[in-house]
Each structure stands twice: as structure tokens, then as C-alpha cells.
Nucleic acid binder design. Structure first.
Lengths: 114, 114
DNA sequence: CCTCCATATAACCAATTACTTATATAATAC
DNA sequence: GTATTATATAAGTAATTGGTTATATGGAGG
């Protein structure tokens, strides 16, 4: 028996949250590097509000957390989340998305926020 | 490194599929017992077409399979699915839903299909 | 063949979703 | 202070979703 049980309603919520390519990729990236909003804007080629709204949903369920650093807000995986073990289990099945960050670095767009 | 990698697009699809309370519960139930459509109708108190449509989505992505037995169609988890390992990992975090089937048996509604 | 039963499909609808643009907030630099 | 930059929120919209009812399909039994 698994020690980290999650009610079925909550699990459905988390899976719906992560059942979006953009948010899932965000979480996978955050699994290896903290990021700020502007980096995600570059990576996903969507508007800044769109990124902000995705991050808010992730934050609302406690999957990510934020920390202000100057004018930037750095997002990271919330390892204390009650969902962390499930999130981690899922991420293990996903190939690394680090190339997306490396592409940013090549363009010189990553240095801006850290 | 995990041997059973899944592309991020495919993973998002599967999570969206399972990010619905009804479908997730269906899959959890199928993890311990095969079921026919009419049983799910009783369990979820939704229409037969609604059940049928959920099962079709699950079948379309290969998460469940069907087998005709007389006039009934028996659904079961498709253990050969490329997603089986992920599905299994998720189900391990969920409490058993067997009570839903036991309730059916008490009402005498389960015997009809097997 | 016709009827009954289990299931699937079609057509429709209200709620939700993921984006957009426009605007507000908040910290930094001058 | 004002301007700039990063982020959040608001409002609007087209697409998707999960349900419904009505109808079609297909096997079982007379």
C-alpha cells in the first residue's frame, strides 16, 4: 500500500492541471531549473499574460511556488506540496526539456533573469 | 533514467484524459475488476451515452480495451498500452474504489452483466 | 422475422478553457 | 517625482468539454 494517498477528486484536479502541454512542460523545466515569467514567454511563444495565467493555476494548487527577486518573480517546484510525489512520478516518465533553456541561452535571453 | 519514456505531448493527452473524476474513477475500478457499461451507469448516475463517451475516449488512447460477451461489452484495463506504466503509477496513489462495486452488489445490480 | 436489451452515435447545449488585448500593480533607474 | 521593466488582472472570444435526449446498431431469444 502506498503511503501517499490522494483523494480521487484531488487527483483528477491535478491531472487536469497537468494535462496541458504548456503547463506540463513548465513543470518539467522547473524540475531542473527555477525560472521567471519572461523565460517562459520566450520558450512557449505565447503572450506574457498567458504564461502568468498558467503559472497562477499551478500555484493555486500548490504545484509551484514563487519568490520575488527584485523585479522578477522566480518560480520553482513546490517540493512540500501534497502532490509532489505524484508530480515527481509523472516527471520521471518525461524526457528532459533542458534543450529549451539551452536554446534561450544561445539567444542570450536567459541571462536577463538570474 | 526511466526506461519507459513518453513524449510530452502524449503525456499531456493522457493526463487530460485522466483529469476527469468520472474517467479516473472508471480506470481505478477497472484496475481491480472488469466492468460493463451498465455497471458504470449505476455507479456514476449519469446517462448511458455519457458513460459510453467516456469509455470511448479511454479506448481511443488505448488505456482500456473492450471485449464483447453476448450482448454485453466488457471493458478492462489495457495492460499492453504504451501508457500502462504511467497509469499504474497514478493508480497507486489512489484509494480503492471497490466500495462502489460492493454497493452495486448490495443493490443486486452487479450480477446482471457477469 | 420481430422484440428486447446493451451499447454506440448524432445532435445539441451550457460551462469551461486557453488564448488574446488592454490595463493595473510593483520594483528599479534615472 | 517620472520612465522603464516585470508581472498580474480584467475583459472578451473561439474552441473544447461533458452532459443531455433522440436515434441507430447489433446480438439474444421467442
Amino acid at each position: 500500500m502506498q503511503e501517499n494517498m490522494i483523494e480521487i477528486e484531488k487527483m483528477a484536479m491535478i491531472l487536469k492541471l497537468l494535462g496541458d502541454k504548456t503547463r506540463l512542460t513548465m513543470v518539467k523545466i522547473l524540475d531542473s531549473h527555477d525560472c521567471c515569467v519572461c523565460e517562459f514567454v520566450e520558450i512557449f511563444k505565447i503572450s506574457q499574460p498567458a504564461v502568468s495565467q498558467h503559472l497562477r493555476k499551478l500555484k493555486d494548487l500548490g504545484v509551484v511556488k514563487e519568490a520575488r527577486r527584485g523585479q522578477w518573480i522566480i518560480y520553482s517546484l513546490h517540493k512540500g506540496s501534497e502532490y509532489y510525489s505524484v508530480v515527481k512520478a509523472l516527471l520521471e516518465h518525461l524526457p528532459s526539456q533542458d534543450h529549451k533553456l539551452h536554446d534561450l541561452e544561445k539567444q542570450g535571453l536567459r541571462i536577463s533573469c538570474d
